[in-house]
């Protein structure tokens, strides 16, 4: 009792600046919507960053490293003036760019000066950036994640796909394992949802090449989806707007160009969390997924009902076994079973 009250108190105090990034205002709107609901449920306050701008993403660092860092650091300088100096970032591309700018500017004085020369407000190096998955996994923790579950999702068989840069390179990401990350697997497992082993957790989906090099991206995503299907999954959980777009929006292109017939929903891990926390599919933007996940949500039941159902099933399974033991027929039954197999 005391421990749980203390946990609630700790949680109520958590506040982060929230850098949603451009994708979450557009093609990844449902990531934003579901993340906000989940954070609210977990007692985390997300503070808006006044007038944030684009981080520059991949295109900026093909131009110049100082220029790229400046586009990112404009935001870091704004966050530095807020009450909280920890920013949570759902998009791995934004996250990497913000972290690289911070690391560059705090380890190299001349780089910092060069970047600040391009800015109106200088960045002094006080901001810590964490992915939203990291905040949920490390700062909130699995116990609190499990505590909030209201609904069971018995039909989901999930593989967690982290993408290339959420955990890489390790010196920049400073979170989880660069080759076999487990945070998303554990978060989803804590919800009581089945998570399967997956060999392609960190393979690259083709990232921003979707537009200029479509066939390349279709081939790469084909491998990622194939491995998920071969692993026995009926949906893929993601934490990156670009991964989601390449796997979901382009899935029909993959089918067409690669002669496949995939029909596997690609869900943000926050949408799965939201479903387990009882939010409606509409509230979580499930209708924004191109490959529908409706069939996976049909048997969603309140957790108490699900537990009662499981107990009844277990009790029913025990009874005939006992009856058989009394009658002393199991040997015959087993022999028949072996023959069938």
């Amino acid at each position: 009792m005391n421990a749980s009250r203390k946990r609630l108190k700790d949680m109520a105090e958590k506040e982060y600046a929230y850098y949603s990034g451009c994708s979450l205002e557009g093609t990844a709107k449902e990531y934003d919507t579901s993340l906000r609901l989940v954070m609210e449920t977990l007692g985390v306050k997300l503070a808006e960053i006044p007038d944030w701008s684009c981080c520059g993403s991949t295109p900026a660092h093909t131009v110049d490293h100082v220029f790229a860092a400046a586009l990112a650091a404009r935001n870091l300088a704004i966050i530095e003036k807020m009450n909280t100096h920890t920013v949570t970032v759902p998009c791995p591309s934004c996250l990497t760019v913000l972290k690289k700018a911070h690391i560059g500017m705090t380890t190299d004085e001349s780089f910092k000066n060069e970047v600040n020369e391009l800015l109106d407000e200088p960045y002094e190096g006080k901001v810590t950036a964490k992915s939203s998955l990291q905040v949920i996994y490390e700062d909130i923790g699995l116990e609190a994640i499990a505590d909030r579950v209201t609904h069971a999702l018995p039909d989901l068989k999930v593989v967690a796909y982290y993408g290339c840069i959420l955990n890489r390179p390790p010196d920049v990401a400073q979170f989880d394992d660069p080759e076999n990350p487990v945070a998303m697997d554990k978060v989803i497992s804590a919800l009581g949802v089945e998570v399967l082993d997956y060999a392609f957790k960190t393979e690259c989906c083709g990232a921003a090449f979707g537009v200029p090099k479509r066939s390349m991206v279709n081939e790469l995503t084909y491998k990622i989806i194939s491995m998920a299907v071969d692993s026995g999954a009926n949906c893929i959980a993601v934490a990156c707007p670009l991964c989601q777009q390449n796997l979901d929006l382009r899935q029909e292109q993959v089918n067409r160009t690669m002669g496949a017939s995939f029909n596997i929903p690609i869900l943000y891990f926050t949408q799965i969390m939201g479903l387990a926390y009882g939010y409606s599919p509409e509230e979580l933007g499930m209708d924004m997924l191109v490959v529908s996940a409706d069939h996976l949500m049909r048997n969603r039941v309140p957790i108490a009902e699900y537990r009662a159902m499981k107990e009844a099933e277990a009790a029913a399974a025990k009874k005939p076994a006992k009856a058989k033991a009394i009658k002393e027929e199991p040997k015959e039954a087993e022999a028949a079973k072996t023959e069938e197999n």
């Binding site: 991949t58 290339c164 890489r168 390179p169 390790p170 660069p178 690259c204 990232a207 090449f209």
Partner: peptide, 11 residues
């Protein structure tokens, strides 16, 4: 130009 900076090589 076809490198996507996926960071596998660096890792």
């Amino acid at each position: 130009w076809l490198c996507a900076t996926c960071e596998t090589c660096t890792t």
